[in-house]
């Protein structure tokens, strides 16, 4: 009688088990992803719009540039340094500064004219409504 070759079957099961485990741990700790570049951003989405929040302490709203090209949002700017008075010395300097730019890929195209941005307490919040032509269209089925 024909007999199945067992070992491959077992190894396939093992592989699947390992994939499941990896996925489990990936879900559990988002920090296993590569370190984000400045500013760290969270992307919220529903069917009609995207909401992006980013931590940018020490910036002023007017110093942040937002650019939209198709489904890419670029956040750029420069975090200023503190103007030290004459004769001042640093004991500790942990806060970074300088120019930055990063692009965020959006889940769909947005209507650039309807984008709203707000900056409060060091958090940038950008709301980007989905472009009308990019929305899913319902197709009616005619019954003959």
């Amino acid at each position: 009688m024909y007999k199945r070759y067992q070992p491959t079957h077992i190894w396939r099961e093992m592989d699947r088990f390992q994939r499941d485990l990896n996925r489990l741990f990936d879900d559990y700790s988002p920090s296993t992803h590569s370190a984000p570049s400045f500013p760290a951003a969270n992307i919220w989405a529903d069917a009609e719009s995207v909401l992006i929040t980013a931590e940018m302490p020490g910036m002023r709203g007017e110093d942040i540039d937002l650019n939209i090209l198709e489904d890419n949002l670029t956040i750029s700017g420069e975090r200023p340094t503190e103007n030290l008075p004459e004769g001042a010395t640093y004991h500790r300097q942990e806060r970074g500064f300088g120019k930055f730019a990063r692009s965020v890929r959006l889940p769909y195209r947005v209507d650039a004219k309807k984008v709203k941005a707000n900056f409060k307490n060091g958090i940038l919040e950008v709301s980007l409504p989905r472009a009308e032509e990019d929305r899913p269209k319902k197709i009616a089925i005619k019954v003959a």
């Binding site: 760290a40 970074g96 930055f100």
Partner: peptide, 12 residues
């Protein structure tokens, strides 16, 4: 301490 530049970091 000199006023050396410190890179921006995103992670807390």
């Amino acid at each position: 301490m000199t006023n050396e530049s410190k890179a921006l970091e995103a992670q807390k």
